[in-house]
Simulated scan of single mutants.
Amino acid sequence: MPAAPVRPFILSPEASIDTRLVHRTHRKDVLPTGITKLDDRHYTVSTRWPADHRRFTDEQGNFLPSLVIESIRQAVILVAHDGLGVPLGHQFLVSAAHHRVDPNRLLAPEAPARLDLDVSIHDLKHRRGVPSSLEARVVLRVDGEIIGTGGGDCSVMTAEVYRRLRRGRTETAWTAALAAPLPAPVPVHSVGRTHDCDVALAPGDEPGHWLLRADVSNELMFDHPNDHMPAMVLLDAAQQAAHIVFEGRPFLPSSCVVSCSRYVEFDSPCTVRADLKEEAGRGYVLSVTGHQGGEQVFEILFRGLSEVR
């Protein structure tokens, strides 16, 4: 019996992906351009990296680690909806996401504009016929060449279950966040940004400590109402803390691991801390953690070499 042909969901690399399939509102923030099903557990997601997206590039035009994580996030959500049959409106709870990539491939002007993400699904569980949890493993390819890997773990739930889990915050948290006073940011250029509204840190009480801040009116960081700080905002804050810690030296990590143990709420201060460990000739490890209500709520680990290129 001949093998079943590969079925492309979207043939053209310029095709439009429905923004809802990657949980984005604005077209400019949608990174995938197409998806091809290889089999029930394997897909290829063609992706475009925009060189002029100020959230994902530094002052020199290099791509930030957050672009790799966001590409993986969107690719996995697209596969879950379009390939695995998760209905629109279901909520995704990401407990961990990671990537390892050659940092030289993120440097302007040679950084790729287009790449393919090969997504394989593992440890897939269902509830009432709908995926309820999964592990995704991702390989990043440019013109067939592997430039990195990544993946993550997530749970999937209906909107009803999510509302019960959040105990009323889905109805009140966003309105309260819009009305809450926003602490003044650290100087915009100290974190490698160009707009105050993109700064995710406010001054803390001691060196290496800051307060998490997020301008919820900034559509780049919050493109739709939310009831907690999105993981990508936490990653923004971690990258900005790294920019301060590295004091003008290039921050070009080869890997990033995002681990979230609890939702980070809008209505309670969250302290961000950075701890850099460097070993001569062996690179560095930078741990950025968030603490809220006396507990650690997230950790983002960056690893890299002291010199790149």
Rank of each mutant, 00 (worst) to 15 (best):
residue 1 M to S: 14
residue 2 P to G: 13
residue 2 P to W: 10
residue 3 A to I: 06
residue 3 A to F: 11
residue 3 A to H: 15
residue 3 A to T: 12
residue 4 A to K: 05
residue 5 P to F: 04
residue 5 P to D: 14
residue 7 R to K: 13
residue 7 R to S: 14
residue 8 P to C: 10
residue 8 P to E: 10
residue 9 F to I: 09
residue 10 I to L: 15
residue 12 S to R: 09
residue 12 S to N: 10
residue 13 P to T: 03
residue 13 P to K: 10
residue 13 P to G: 05
residue 14 E to S: 14
residue 14 E to Y: 08
residue 14 E to D: 14
residue 15 A to P: 03
residue 15 A to S: 13
residue 16 S to A: 13
residue 16 S to C: 06
residue 16 S to E: 13
residue 16 S to H: 10
residue 16 S to P: 03
residue 17 I to Y: 01
residue 17 I to P: 00
residue 17 I to H: 04
residue 17 I to K: 02
residue 18 D to K: 10
residue 20 R to I: 06
residue 21 L to I: 01
residue 22 V to Q: 05
residue 22 V to H: 07
residue 23 H to S: 13
residue 23 H to M: 05
residue 23 H to R: 11
residue 23 H to L: 08
residue 23 H to P: 06
residue 24 R to W: 01
residue 24 R to I: 00
residue 25 T to I: 11
residue 26 H to N: 11
residue 26 H to F: 14
residue 27 R to P: 01
residue 27 R to G: 05
residue 27 R to S: 08
residue 27 R to T: 02
residue 29 D to E: 14
residue 29 D to K: 04
residue 29 D to C: 03
residue 30 V to S: 00
residue 30 V to L: 05
residue 31 L to H: 05
residue 32 P to D: 06
residue 34 G to P: 05
residue 35 I to W: 08
residue 35 I to K: 09
residue 36 T to Q: 07
residue 37 K to R: 15
residue 37 K to S: 12
residue 38 L to F: 08
residue 38 L to E: 08
residue 38 L to H: 08
residue 39 D to M: 07
residue 39 D to F: 09
residue 40 D to C: 00
residue 41 R to M: 13
residue 41 R to D: 13
residue 42 H to W: 02
residue 42 H to A: 11
residue 42 H to T: 14
residue 43 Y to K: 10
residue 43 Y to V: 10
residue 45 V to D: 06
residue 46 S to W: 14
residue 46 S to R: 15
residue 46 S to T: 07
residue 46 S to C: 12
residue 47 T to W: 05
residue 47 T to P: 07
residue 48 R to N: 00
residue 48 R to W: 03
residue 49 W to R: 00
residue 49 W to I: 02
residue 49 W to T: 00
residue 49 W to Y: 05
residue 50 P to Q: 02
residue 50 P to K: 04
residue 51 A to M: 07
residue 52 D to C: 07
residue 52 D to F: 04
residue 52 D to I: 01
residue 52 D to E: 09
residue 52 D to N: 11
residue 52 D to M: 06
residue 53 H to E: 02
residue 53 H to C: 00
residue 54 R to C: 07
residue 55 R to E: 09
residue 55 R to A: 13
